[in-house]
C-alpha cells in the first residue's frame, strides 16, 4: 500500500454508472441471462461511505510468477504451449487519472480453447503446463502487465453453433467497492467478436470496441512475444470541494 499512502485520499462519491453503456441484465440472446436477471428496477442511491470505500491490496501479496501464466503452472523448465503474448495497459478512472494499487485478476482458456475446470467438457485437451490464472497490481502510474499465451476460441451451448471469440476475463478492484468490475478482453482483428451473443449483450458498438485490445507493435519483444495493449477505465470520483464531509459536519 506504500504507493498510495502519500497521495491525497480520495473520498468523493463515484460518477453514476451509465447503464445504457453497460449490458442490461436481461439480454435473451444470451440465454442464461433470462432466469438470472432482476425484473424489478434497481434502487438508486448516491454513494455512502459503504460504497466509496473498498479493499486495497499491497504488492507484497504477489508471488514472482503471479503475472506469468506461461510459467506459473508449468513444470520447472517447461512452459505453456501457444502464441506467446504480453498483455499490458493502464487502469484509469473516468477523469483520466491513473488508478494506482488496483488489483487485477485474470483467467482464460489455453491455446486450444480448453479451460482447466471440472465442469468443462470440451474435447480439446488440457495443456499440462497451463493453469490459466494470474494477477497483478498497478504501479503508481496505473500500469500493469502480464505474460501469457493467446487463448483459443471455444464452443458453448447457447445457440446450436455459438463460439466465444478468443478472450481473457478480467476482474478489477479500484479503491471503492462501487468500482468493482468484471469484464472480458478481446483481440484486435478477431472476426468472432461480432458473432458472439455475450459481446452482443453490450448495446453500444463503441463500448464493445473499448474491450478490444490493440496489437502493440512497439512493445512486441523480438523473437519472443507479441504485445497487446488493454486499458481499463473505472468509475471516476466527484470532487469533494463543495460537499459536506461524510461525518455530517
Amino acid at each position: 500500500m506504500s504507493e498510495t499512502e502519500n497521495r491525497k485520499r480520495e473520498t468523493g462519491a463515484f460518477f453514476q454508472r451509465d447503464r445504457d453503456w453497460h449490458p442490461p441484465a436481461f439480454a435473451p440472446g444470451y440465454k442464461t441471462s433470462v432466469l438470472r436477471s432482476p425484473r424489478k428496477a434497481l434502487l438508486s442511491l448516491d454513494n455512502t461511505i459503504s460504497e466509496i470505500t473498498g479493499p486495497v491490496f499491497g504488492h507484497s501479496m504477489l508471488g514472482e510468477l503471479d503475472n506469468d501464466l506461461i510459467h506459473n503452472f508449468a513444470t520447472p523448465g517447461e512452459s505453456a504451449i501457444g502464441e506467446r503474448i504480453i498483455v499490458h495497459g493502464r487502469v484509469l478512472d473516468e477523469r483520466g487519472r491513473p488508478v494506482a494499487g488496483a488489483l487485477l485478476e485474470f483467467w482464460q482458456a489455453n491455446a486450444g480453447g480448453r479451460y482447466r475446470h471440472k465442469k468443462e467438457s470440451y474435447l480439446a485437451p488440457l495443456d499440462p503446463n497451463f493453469g490459466g490464472c494470474g494477477r497483478a497490481i498497478t504501479d503508481e502510474n496505473g500500469y500493469y502487465g502480464f505474460r501469457t499465451i493467446r487463448p483459443g476460441a471455444y464452443p458453448w451451448p447457447n445457440g446450436v453453433n455459438d463460439w466465444r471469440p478468443a478472450h481473457i476475463h478480467f476482474s478489477v478492484f479500484g479503491h471503492g467497492f462501487a468500482q468493482r468490475l468484471i469484464t472480458q478482453m478481446y483481440f484486435e482483428g478477431d472476426p468472432m467478436i461480432w458473432k458472439c451473443p455475450i459481446v452482443g449483450t453490450i448495446p453500444d458498438r463503441r463500448a464493445i470496441e473499448q474491450l478490444i485490445a490493440s496489437l502493440d507493435w512497439a512493445n512486441t519483444i523480438p523473437m519472443d512475444a507479441r504485445a497487446y495493449k488493454f486499458d481499463i477505465v473505472l468509475r471516476g470520483r466527484r470532487s469533494t470541494f463543495f460537499e459536506n464531509r461524510l461525518e455530517g459536519n
Binding site: 460518477f15 454508472r17 451509465d18 453503456w21 453497460h22 449490458p23 444470451y30 441471462s33 484509469l92 478512472d93 473516468e94 477523469r95 483520466g96 476475463h169 478489477v172 468490475l181 468484471i182 469484464t183 472480458q184 455475450i198 459481446v199 449483450t201 453490450i202 453500444d204 463503441r206 463500448a207 464493445i208 473499448q210 474491450l211 481499463i232 477505465v233 473505472l234 468509475r235 471516476g236
Partner: peptide, 8 residues
C-alpha cells in the same frame, strides 16, 4: 472517459 463495459 467512458467506464469499461461489464461482461459476465
Amino acid at each position: 472517459l467512458k467506464e469499461t463495459a461489464s461482461q459476465t
